[in-house]
Design a protein around this nucleic acid. Structure first.
Length: 488
RNA sequence: CGGGGCGUGGCGCAGCUCGGUAGCGCGCCUGCUUUGGGAGCAGGAGGCCCCCGGUUCGAAUCCGGGCGCCCCGACCA
């Protein structure tokens, strides 16, 4: 970097920008263990806000939280065939404990389906015990070869929901409910628009019958899988003997779902809204929504008055449930503070100096300039404090609108030619909509030739309207529209 | 797992080719002056130079071996 205070611009090297901005916004730092990270208070605060919003939604839809253990017997993982094949390569295994080798190795959970359904089998006897609707907030471990802060680390935080139902229909309804809930959350809180739909066979969760996902488009035009919801059918209930007696008195296997979102969403937020000055945290997620920077000048009396007024404004904002902080550090110049808070993505800054005090005004600066106005405004104290709750919401909406526009500008519908798809993916990237016959060989070829995968078979709302006629892969007829992209 | 890079005060680096005094910028501490977009001056603290072995009177530097981390490609929320 020419100036080490500045970030590598996104356009120059997006990956380098991402690493720098995550470190310098103090979201996270590398830990002594390869591929794992420390989530620092600023990053964890954002995650906590995500958790609170999601947790409320889970509770509102009848789910309860519980906690299942970190360690899982190896033979549990091995029970479901597809499941073990999917996870075996990335398992971390405990072989020794208490100074001795264990008779049976224990796996550090890569996900908890096996132990959860083992326990459900114990708790469920009758259809009257169903549905079981549980969620847990936990850490999991997948020994990744290649890691990136938030996007892929050996250990990460997430929530995993696990449900059991009397019927296939009811379980399917649950997966859809959660998928919709995820989508609504990502749009309204992260201001990150997502496509939702079905995963292809090759991309689905190991052990699921069907997987649905939320796919977002990052600023470098690569896709990020931001959340998944799985219909597990009876795959696990059969392996773990999760049976119930039906109304008719027959023994039946329960129908399961599982679904999760992780700290990866923090990475999604960074790559959706960040700019060359730093990250941009949507107001609803921001641990600090408004930072007040007092500008001290002109003697002690004035300084006292400025600090007093800053605290008074902070009090008024707090009363309106705005998360506000007064930056009283006196060893930093105002300019240094401006840069720091912009790097950390605080939505609004209030500057309060002697001139402002005299004029009963304040300088309000939005992290990103609004489309129809200046980034900086001079407002009366009263006006500034009363309008801020609404301004935060406006900014939130604008971030979403910007992200939707960017995604649409980088979505290419009705592509019918293989070479054209490759050209798009090689040069600019983005979401490419084509027809597909359903033949996995086409996916394989795309992966090899253009490093792209089918991100999702879009739900009705995201489809182009006119059904594609031919499969992008060549001669066959199209059976469905699909969305291709290079992915994280 | 393959390819590349890097390990030197808290951070970013120079020094290594050609062995001999460990250096620069930022940060940190103290004091004074400052504060409207990364403050100035003065003084100061802080280093098993990744580890182990070898060569040498002498190793951050040369040789051998290890370890670690980051980045780029095949699997994954």
């Amino acid at each position: 970097m020419a100036d080490e205070r500045k970030l590598t611009p996104r356009g120059e090297d997006f990956a380098a920008w991402y690493n720098e901005v995550v470190l310098r916004a103090e979201l996270a730092d590398y830990s002594p263990v390869r591929g794992s990270m420390v989530i620092r208070p600023w990053g964890y605060g954002i995650w906590e806000n995500m958790q609170a919003a999601l947790d409320r939604r889970f509770k509102d839809t009848g789910h309860e939280n519980a906690y299942f253990p970190l360690l899982i017997p190896m033979n549990f993982i091995e029970k479901e065939k597809a499941h073990v094949e999917g996870f075996k390569p990335e398992l971390a295994v405990v072989t020794h404990a208490g100074g001795k080798e264990l008779e049976e190795s224990l796996v550090i959970r890569p996900t908890s389906e096996t132990v959860v359904y083992h326990m459900y089998a114990k708790w469920v006897q009758s259809y009257r015990d169903l549905p079981v609707l549980m969620n847990q907030w936990a850490n999991v471990m997948r020994w990744e070869l290649r890691t990136r802060l938030f996007l892929r680390t050996a250990e990460f935080l997430w929530q995993e929901g696990h449900t059991a139902h009397v019927s296939s229909e009811e379980a399917e309804q649950e997966t859809q409910l959660i998928l919709g809930l995820y989508r609504e959350f990502m749009e309204s809180w992260i201001a990150m628009p997502v496509l939702t739909g079905l995963k292809t066979e090759s991309e689905k969760f190991a052990g699921a019958v069907r997987s649905y996902s939320c796919e977002a488009l990052m600023q470098d035009n690569r896709a990020l899988q931001a959340g998944t919801s799985h219909f597990l059918g009876q795959n696990f209930s059969k392996q773990f003997d999760l049976k119930f007696q039906s109304v008719e008195g027959k023994d039946e296997y329960a129908w399961n779902t599982s679904w999760g979102v992780s700290t990866r969403m923090v990475g999604g937020m960074v790559m959706t809204h960040g700019d060359d000055q730093g990250i941009v945290v949507p107001p609803r997620l921001a641990p600090v929504q408004v930072v007040i920077v007092p500008i001290i000048k002109g003697g002690d009396a004035k300084a006292t008055a400025i600090h007093h007024k800053a605290e008074e404004l902070a009090g008024m904002l707090t009363a309106q449930h705005v998360r506000v902080k007064v930056d009283r550090r006196d060893h930093l110049s105002p300019g240094a503070k401006f840069y720091e808070w912009e790097r950390k993505g605080v939505p609004f800054r209030l500057e309060l100096g002697p001139k402002d005090l005299d004029k009963e005004q304040v300088v309000l600066v939005q992290r990103v300039a609004p489309h129809d106005g200046p980034r900086k405004e001079f407002l009366s104290h009263v006006h500034a404090t009363t309008m801020l709750p609404e301004r935060l919401e406006e900014f939130q909406r604008e971030l979403l609108a910007n992200a939707v526009r960017r995604r649409e500008d980088n979505s290419f519908r009705g592509i019918t030619d293989w070479g054209e798809m490759k050209e798009i993916l090689d040069t600019q990237g983005g979401f490419v909509y084509t027809g597909w016959s359903g033949d996995p060989a086409v996916e394989q070829r795309a992966k090899e030739e253009m490093k792209a995968t089918i991100r999702v078979i879009p739900g009705e709302e995201f489809q182009s309207g006119t059904d594609p006629v031919r499969c992008i892969g060549g001669s066959g007829a199209s059976r469905m529209e699909v969305v291709w992209a290079r992915a994280y």
